[in-house]
Simulated scan of single mutants.
Amino acid sequence: MTLYIEPGRPINLGPLVPLGEGGQGVVLGLLDEPGVCFKFFLEPSEDLDRRVNGLLKQRPTEWPDGGEQVIAWPKWPLRDETGRIRSVVLPRFDGASLYALFDADQRLEFLDHPTWATCLQAAIRISSIYRQLHRVDVVIGDVSPNNLIVDRSGRVALIDCDSVQFVDDWSREVFPADMATREYCSPEALGSPARHLAPSHDLFGMAILLCQLLMDGDHPFEGRPLRGPDHGVEGNIREGTSALFTPERLVPVAGRLDLRVLPRVVQQLAFRALSQGHTHPHVRPSAAEWERVLRGVLNDLLGCPRNANHFFPAALGPCPWCARYDAGIADHFPSGSRGLR
């Protein structure tokens, strides 16, 4: 099939290599061009044409394709001979899913500096991405670690941007978010799926992601209830049962990180987002507030004299990672001289 970058101007892509796939399409890259990739849609349609055309008009000019965080927004469409959009050109960003930062072994494999400081920097970059999108009234909708890619230095990219919720600036047509990951859904979206989501929906799931990054991958709503049936993470979100703020409702898990490994200012943000904000979405902290507070924490980090890979907020006192290791718990930020137990 011949594709056209504009009417009468065909484009020769050459050999393509698979980079990823999802429910809406497959992503392919060029062998000799690391800066771009192509998403080919499985079901082209008139509705998809309107969505992609709206996305292309939405992109603010100040969003960079490089830097500490990347928003992989569609750059231009590729059409078939009938004018139907078959593919979009995207910025390419190579790395691992954010899930890699939730696991100690994967951090060692995928990061140049597998430290808590790198996880904190990733959290700052994610909150910055959400801030930039919310500023132009874009709601991500499908909050998920799978939609965030991290490279070896800890830079972060948001992918699958074609499924976000936005309003076409010209036609004023509202395009709803197409996808959802229920383990990161807000309680209001789980209880009554709405066609139009508020930014506060994103802020609930984003807070879960940030807590996971800062608490060694532990999902705040993961755990088995002490009483009643176990409906998994989704059920705990519905009930407001959190390992951080209602641990008495869950079966204790040995070695699980305590909320006290976070500085007080971060604990307060998490409480507003996930506890108070469970039933009052308007009190959830904005992405801008998260970014500002986390940058303050980064500026206040201390290094550990015993382990060069241990970083922690100065307000916590002695190194919490060494305290866990000394108590016989695995060191999830090990130096070269000692590994995971």
Rank of each mutant, 00 (worst) to 15 (best):
A198M: 08
H201W: 04
D202A: 10
L203Y: 04
L203V: 00
F204D: 00
G205K: 10
A207S: 15
A207E: 01
I208F: 08
I208Q: 07
L209G: 01
M215N: 06
D216C: 04
G217E: 01
G217V: 05
D218K: 06
P220T: 11
F221M: 05
E222G: 07
R227S: 13
G232E: 00
V233F: 06
E234Y: 09
G235C: 11
N236Q: 08
N236D: 00
E239K: 15
E239Q: 13
G240A: 12
A243W: 07
T246G: 09
P247H: 12
P247N: 07
E248I: 01
A254S: 11
G255A: 08
D258L: 13
L259Y: 05
R260Y: 02
L262M: 09
P263L: 03
V265G: 00
Q268A: 14
L269F: 04
L269P: 04
A270E: 07
A270H: 11
F271C: 12
A273I: 06
Q276Y: 12
T279Y: 08
T279K: 14
P281T: 01
H282F: 12
R284P: 06
R284Q: 04
P285V: 06
P285R: 14
P285T: 03
A287N: 03
A287T: 01
A288H: 03
E289M: 13
R292M: 13
R295L: 12
G296D: 02
D300Q: 10
L302E: 11
G303W: 02
C304T: 00
P305F: 11
P305R: 15
R306T: 01
N307S: 11
N309H: 14
H310R: 14
F311T: 01
F312A: 06
P313E: 00
P313Q: 04
P313G: 02
A314D: 04
A315I: 01
L316W: 02
P318G: 05
C319I: 01
P320M: 11
A323C: 05
A323S: 13
D326G: 01
G328C: 07
A330M: 13
A330L: 12
A330I: 12
A330Y: 04
H332A: 02
H332D: 03
R338E: 10
R338S: 13
R338F: 07
L340R: 14
L340W: 04
